[in-house]
Design a protein around this nucleic acid. Sequence first.
DNA 1: AATCGTTCCAACCGCACCGTG
DNA 2: TCACGGTGCGGTTGGAACGAT
Length: 325
Amino acid sequence: MDMDKEYYRACMGMEALPMSPAGLSAVTTEAAAMAVATASEDEGDLKRGPWTAEEDMLLVDYISKHGEGRWNSLARCAGLRRTGKSCRLRWLNYLRPDVRRGNITPEEQLLILDLHSRWGNRWSKIAQRLPGRTDNEVKNYWRTRVQKHAKQLHCDVNSDRFRDVVRQVWMPRLLERIQAESSSSAAAAAAGVGVPALTRAMSSPAGASQYHYVDHASSGEPSRPVAVTMSPDTSSTLRSSLSSADASHGAHFPAWGAATATASIDGSTMQCATVDGGAIGGDHCVIHGDSLSGSWSELLAATNIPDFEFGNFDDNLWSLEDIYC
DNA sequence: AATCGTTCCAACCGCACCGTG
DNA sequence: TCACGGTGCGGTTGGAACGAT
């Protein structure tokens, strides 16, 4: 294949290659490549397991000079005793410059929950909507956090019951937190503190509240605008949860039957909570205590989601703080 | 300080799909 | 049409890190 030939030609010319953008000299890289190749020749097969800093350097340097693609050829030409698959995975999940690390933000959590409800375990498709996040990271998040909570609720993660909890409890709470964080950011910004800029518009003819959250904090990254739009019903009840006179005693939850909270992140619009008024009863669900604490057994009992045996929940099984981590 | 259990994530595996000869 | 190699995806696992006892 021509592409393979291109790569082999590139290999043959490596000794004349200039300094890489990463600051790694071609001489150093070549020496490292030879060292790796020589060492692994004795082993007689491909290396597996954790990547060394030396291997990372080889891969990054090679890709910076020749680009991605043809991973099997790339692995050979770079002097790596690794499979092409291994190189591709290491690059995409770890070494790629635009890979984003750190905690999954509430906005990202919301997006993951929403997209998973639509697409299921299509991790790569979901990850495409989360700039800088990899399918592996999204998948790990789902398995370590979401599935854990499903287990604690004694239900399958793909069950309708758990979906109800996600859509009617988890996602609205995330929206609420995004809103709360936006509000605090706005206050800080108004005070002249260098935090993500926030603008809030309350001028919608329909009376809907819209929050535009633009994260400028991460230098070198594109801005991540987050717009949270709520219907009048939802916004009023959500507002009440943050500022009602009852706040000292308890927080109001949205009137679930009428809640149509939506949010858009990076152009993707999501909707959470049901519009079906029949399934969830009551005008307001009042949760005593702090709005961001308490147990799920309390919350689920208050929201009156059908088919849950609330008595089975341990009191501190799944604190509301957990879902925000 | 030592041990044990849990969590998290990087990496691997198997499979399916696609393009090419 | 078929075989083969490359690529991408979802599932699984091993081990490091961390917290609890």
